[in-house]
């Protein structure tokens, strides 16, 4: 047994270290040029998306290849409400989120009864359907050409015009998102999700309503995805169907697996690393998607629990003294 004070110091360190990393990166970004701000802003948006996906895929151990559908709903929701109907960004943000949540609940109810490759294909189909609709429903979405003229984030008359101000807002939202994820992970709810990941029949036997908890995790993931989509629309001021296409699925999975699936900070860290990757692979611009795919496949083969879990495994003997089984 370890004394509670040591455990709490360690867990405090474990919580503070990633916060420090994220804040340092944001701080560096704030002192750099506009381009770096954009890249880090993307990372924060993807971090929010992946943190949500982690609820469904990490904690609950399910698979969804179609969360981009809800990012698409959020993005177009904000774009149309703010760009077309001149709403304030904030109500548009929450209305899109509520809409995505309701859609996720309605679609998720029959979808989550499926298993294995049926579940994979059905969720993949959701992403494809929204993609096709966002191309074909030209009168609403402006089709292939994309939706431009979306105002930046803001409340009432106070607009975050500068990219750096927006980055601060994104960082705050990301940290809040991760905080919720951390708090929920060890709550009764989070433990139920993780029980489902461990074994569905066992969770059922312990009195966990498996179907309801799966659906809840799916809806939470959709809410995060919608938020990420809305933020993307405000941050860039332009969206097109391609933004929420199949490449987004592979990219977000790369982040999730690189950072460590099922951990609280992994998704955000993964998003940060993958977003900065192209900067280190300069000159390989058009090879970017190929690089993501190769990285993802290698991780899936060699380190299926995430790179940090692999590195963490090297230090495990040291940690054994402190960690009582």
């Amino acid at each position: 047994m370890t004394s509670p004070s040591i455990t709490s110091t360690r867990s405090l360190l474990r919580t503070l270290a990633p916060v420090a990393v994220v804040l340092t990166v944001m701080g560096i970004a704030l002192m750099s040029s506009g381009y770096v701000v954009t890249v880090i802003g993307f990372a924060a948006i993807y971090g929010i998306f992946c943190t949500g996906l982690n609820f469904f895929m990490g904690y609950t151990g399910q698979a969804s290849f179609g969360q981009n559908a809800f990012a698409c709903l959020g993005g177009y929701g904000s774009a149309i409400l703010c760009g077309g109907l001149y709403w304030d960004p904030l109500p548009a943000f929450f209305v899109s989120m509520a809409f995505s949540g309701i859609v996720a609940a309605i679609i998720g109810y029959p979808t989550l009864k499926l298993r294995g490759h049926y579940l994979a294909m059905a969720t993949f189909a959701l992403g494809l359907i929204t993609y096709e609709i966002s191309i074909e429903w030209v009168s609403l979405t402006q089709g292939y050409m994309g939706y431009s003229g979306i105002p930046p984030l803001g409340v009432g008359k106070f607009e975050l015009v500068s990219e750096k101000h927006q980055l601060i807002a994104l960082t705050v939202i990301l940290l809040v998102g991760i905080w919720i994820s951390t708090r929920l992970r060890d709550s009764r709810f989070g433990r139920a999700l993780r029980a489902i990941a461990g074994s569905e029949p066992a969770a059922q036997a312990l009195g966990v309503n498996v179907a309801r908890y799966k659906l809840l995790a799916f809806v939470i993931a959709a809410l995060y995805a919608s938020a990420a989509g809305s933020l993307f629309a405000h941050f860039i001021g332009f969206i097109s169907p391609e933004v929420f296409g199949g490449a987004m699925v592979v990219q977000s999975f790369t982040m999730l697996y690189l950072g460590g699936i099922g951990t609280t900070w992994g998704p955000a860290i993964g998003a940060l690393i993958v977003s900065m990757l192209p900067e280190f692979l300069r000159g390989l611009k058009e090879m970017q998607d190929i690089a993501y795919a190769i990285i993802l496949v290698s991780i899936l083969i060699f380190a299926p629990r995430g790179v940090f879990a692999l590195i963490g495994g090297w230090f495990r003997p040291k940690a054994k003294e402190g960690d009582a089984p």
Binding site: A63, F65, H117, F124, T254, D289, L300
Partner: peptide, 13 residues
């Protein structure tokens, strides 16, 4: 689903 994901990534590649 990891294998499915890998084949999906292969398709994009």
């Amino acid at each position: 689903f990891a294998i499915i994901l890998a084949t999906l990534a292969t398709q994009i590649m």
